[in-house]
Design a binder for these strands. Structure first.
Lengths: 344, 344
DNA sequence: CGTTATGATGAAAACGTTAACATTTATAGT
DNA sequence: ACTATAAATGTTAACGTTTTCATCATAACG
């Protein structure tokens, strides 16, 4: 393996000069810089990052930590997140990935190993990890889940806007009896999405029907059960907004099993736009959360924090937008005299 | 930040002794080893990997490279692969991920940066990268795609076995008119899957019908087109084996669009068991390739090659198995007199 | 032409660890 | 008790960089 000393010898200069030349120091005469660069490239020189990092006290590594890699739902996150991160990340940075609950994840957290850390968080269980990172004084950005703590840099999608968009869309399609299957209770995403939903209803002069709030926990099964509850109602909703795509799948299955046609009899809207959303039958209309955009934005933020660790952390919410597929139908019933007693 | 010298001072020994104690050298008396370990842990010592790697000439990093992270189909790979790799990988290894065609991927390949490399390959386009790695003399294992070159360690699923299983299943369900939509021509996976299919037919005494071999290229669209071609035939097949799940989706859509019922009128079998396979309508019967298992096995192999770089590389094929869902129906028609003119 | 500022290079130390070699201390054999 | 051997620890150099500080030209100035 060839080192800067080899290059120095070949160029007839000191290794210090080589180091400077290769790192673009202004102290070096342009002509010698060129000469050295040429030689280095001819000799196929590649720097030894261990040595470099040792002396600069950097690691050149940023760590990406996922909550529960085990969980199936997180699948597409990885690819999308990576795409976004790489887009912003200088290529000489190494990007490592681990699960938050991988053995040794907590212990491995130290400023020597990571110049910065991104947490792609999906659950409050990650908080322990997050605070551990913060107390280790490593630049940190939490992605994908909205945090309350303003001392932590954070970028996520705006769940409230998303919830509102979903309900708005149902309304615009003529629906007035719009139900919601809620996400896991206690999760910020759940309450934000519900808030967006009620906002929308209220702003359209619809007073929320207590029967139309059904609890769920983001699992397919809970969506199935919740939809059944909804279908048992006397005054069935004509549209239901599901807190995530998984529950929407469950809801869709419940409909099939009872011979209820989607979207003919009932319209369904999901949230997240997971990859499989376009493969369901009918393809699912849902709220698209751009994971790659969140990741990209978060990376930018992280880089910035690594440069200036002491600027006040920023919270950023990225808009989420509706993607129309085929699980929502126009509701043709005359809206006027249905107001207040929709869809009997 | 605290170093072994700090510990040495605190323990009243030399830093060498500390180093040895912490690394479990047999030269150190157990009692002092304990004492030092205690002190180190009390002082919250964490080793400086840069220094360590510098002197041991290791990087402690293994690199995972994906073909075309951009491609949607690869999504679930990432999560599964990671799961498998982490299962085998000692926690103090860092695992980095990059796309093969990320800018700088080729240049970053050098033995200083990676102790070993895993390539999760999906296409022959990766060969350039693969040979680059090999020529850089870095321990390498190629995952997921079967290679011809015996000088490269390789673990993939046994596509032939999978193809045979698919056709066998159709046969066992009573189907005799079984077609195949083939994968991208030139890809090893395509020919292996076809080979398995013909093997099965032959071994059941069915002579392959040339009409029943329809070309495809692994895309949804090609599956759609191929299925249409099949449905245009006078002697429609009663079951179709699709070279991958994407094409199966396309085929399913073609059926829907023509009012052909799946699996009532025609049974469909996919390959890969992508996450969305269970969400289609009907859920897709397909061949499950255990990506995580492949990744785990590949990691084991890589670790082994890192220890003993000069043992002959191994090729390993992991069995793939059928997962039954609901896109295949029993074919009740009397097989005898339908032979040759099935399902008009 | 001599002094001084400036621009370019070099020498040596430092980063935190492991490893080769040297030294001390304990153990055993006679 | 005295050496020979083994076990435990210590000294020092090395890994490949960057950085601090010193040196040497060269140009600028009066």
């Amino acid at each position: 393996m060839i080192t800067i000393k080899d290059i120095a010898r070949a160029a007839g200069v000191s290794h210090t000069t080589v180091s400077r030349a290769l790192n673009g120091s202004p102290l070096i005469k342009p002509v010698t810089r060129e000469r050295i660069a040429k030689i280095a490239s001819d000799m196929n020189y590649v720097p030894n990052y261990s040595a470099k990092n040792l002396v600069t006290r950097k690691s050149n590594t940023i760590g990406l930590f996922f909550s529960s890699i085990e969980q199936g739902t997180s699948s597409s996150f990885l690819a999308d997140a990576l795409k976004g991160i790489r887009r912003e990340l200088d290529e000489h940075y190494m990007l490592t990935m681990s699960g938050i609950d991988d053995p040794g994840s907590l212990e491995s957290i130290n400023p020597r190993r990571y110049d910065g850390i991104l947490v792609m968080s999906q659950s409050e269980l990650d908080n322990r990890f997050i605070y551990h990172v913060q107390s280790a004084d490593i630049p940190l950005v939490v992605l994908n889940r909205q945090l309350d703590d303003p001392s932590i840099a954070n970028v996520a999608s705006d769940d409230r806007v998303g919830g509102r968009a979903a309900a708005d869309h149902a309304f615009e399609c003529g629906h007035r009896a719009i139900a919601i299957i809620e996400g896991k209770s206690g999760f910020k995403s759940s309450s934000e999405r519900r808030l967006g939903y009620t906002d929308s209803l209220l702003s359209h002069g619809i007073s929320p029907n207590p029967d139309y709030f059904v609890p769920g926990d983001y699992s397919i099964e809970s969506g199935y059960a919740a939809m059944n509850a909804l279908l048992d109602l006397n005054n069935r909703p004509t549209a239901v907004f599901c807190g995530n795509d998984d529950m929407a799948i469950g809801a869709m299955n419940a409909c099939f099993d009872r011979g209820v046609h989607v979207p003919g009899d009932v319209s369904l809207i999901g949230f997240d736009d997971m990859i499989f959303a376009r493969y369901t039958n009918p393809p699912l209309t849902t709220i698209h959360k751009s994971v790659s955009e969140i990741a990209a934005e978060g990376t930018k933020l992280l880089l910035q924090r690594m440069e200036q660790p002491h600027v006040r952390p920023i919270q950023r919410l990225l808009g989420s937008k509706l993607v129309q597929r085929r699980s929502v139908a126009k509701f043709a019933g005359s809206n006027e005299h249905r107001l207040g007693s929709a869809a009997e």
